[in-house]
Amino acid sequence: KTRRYEAAVAAADAQIILNTEQAGFIEAEHEMEYTSSLSQVELKRNHLDENTARHIYDLTLPSGPYGCKFDRSGRYSIVYGQRGHLAIMDAHNLNLHTEFNVRERVRDACFLHNFSLLAVAQTNHVYIYDDTGAEVHKLSDHHDPMALEFLPYHWLLASIGRTGHLIYQDTSTGGVVSQQRTKLGPCRVLRQNPSNAVINLGHSNGTVTLWSPSSNQYLAKMHCHKGSPITSMAVDISGNYMATGGADRQVKIWDLRKFQCTHSYFSIAGIPTSLDISQRGVLGVGHAGHATLWSPEALLKKVKEPYMRHSVPACGPVETLRFRPFEDVCTIGHAKGVASIVIPGSGEPNLDTTEYNLNPFQDKKQRREAEVRALLDKLDHGMITLDPNAIG
């Protein structure tokens, strides 16, 4: 007992000593000053160290509009252009890892369990490529895909497309787990709830439906934007709050525990085409040629002034807005390329190394070991339910 007690005390001390990093938000000195007036140029020149400041950049690319997504560790990013240009970048060193062209329209792309495999939604089907750009698989069951999402704990690739069929494919065995008709027409808005792996779909009639592969019917249906198509959606890491953007220029915040709208924001510049919520709760809204960032309090109550603003003039509308995991970085994909900006306080400062495929510094041996362990701990798709504490 004494040894256990001493070990517990030592572990607690190590937790206090090692996890010294804190998420630091920008704070105004007085009431007449707003943090939203701080530009990226001023932030880079006066307030950031050299290592952080190099993450503020603009990439001008010819085959736009472009989208950008990260793997779970935040180490690698995939940049995809609608004309078929694909590139994997090392976000730490800002080096180009792989670049290739599929010579076909690309609607969406995402990494699978790590950066070594990526799924690309092309004109007719979903294709799997490795990190060298070689085609590995063609998923013929996914017809006319428009949006992709990977569920890391269940090893499932979910896709939705023009036919309105939600398809789950097991990437460890290669088999189709379920194929469900939404009966709500074409869909291009698909996001997962990180806490319970439920898929949220945004439809053209203004509704959001929640799906599980073990159910033929939606688990819940929410009427979010009356008479306006859903254009974008995001769910926070706790799974309690969801943000939806509609063609009515409204960004609504929903409490998923009660399925109620708590408050909303009006997007003056244009329709919110992309939403994302960072690990620390910063809400990012991409609308027209602008990105508006709201503080974590904006999910809990209505806030008058945004946290930060950024504009990409003559490059709108924003195609994707994504926060980089474990870093205070946000990337904006637009018609003429990709812009990267720094949002202080948006990233989780402390890394959980016990989680598989989250370590951005892992070597090849560690990556192979994490892949095997993640496969052994893979959850059954029947366990996906609205209540994450209930066993399906």
Rank of each mutant, 00 (worst) to 15 (best):
E6S: 12
A28L: 04
M32Y: 08
L38G: 01
E42P: 04
R45N: 01
L59W: 05
T60G: 10
T60E: 08
P62S: 13
P65N: 11
F70K: 08
Y76C: 13
Y76G: 06
Q82T: 04
A87S: 15
N93F: 05
N95P: 05
H97V: 08
F100S: 10
E104Y: 10
C110K: 02
Y127C: 02
Y127N: 01
H137V: 00
L139M: 12
H142S: 00
M146N: 07
L157A: 10
D170W: 09
S172C: 09
T173N: 13
Q179C: 06
Q180V: 11
V189C: 10
R191P: 14
N193Y: 08
I199S: 07
H203N: 07
T207D: 12
T207I: 13
S212D: 04
S212R: 11
N216S: 12
Q217K: 13
A234M: 02
M242I: 04
V251R: 05
V251G: 10
K252L: 06
K258L: 09
T262M: 15
S267P: 14
A269H: 09
I277D: 06
Q279P: 08
R280M: 09
H290N: 09
A291H: 06
K301W: 09
K302W: 00
P325L: 04
S340E: 08
F361N: 03
G382S: 04
I391R: 12
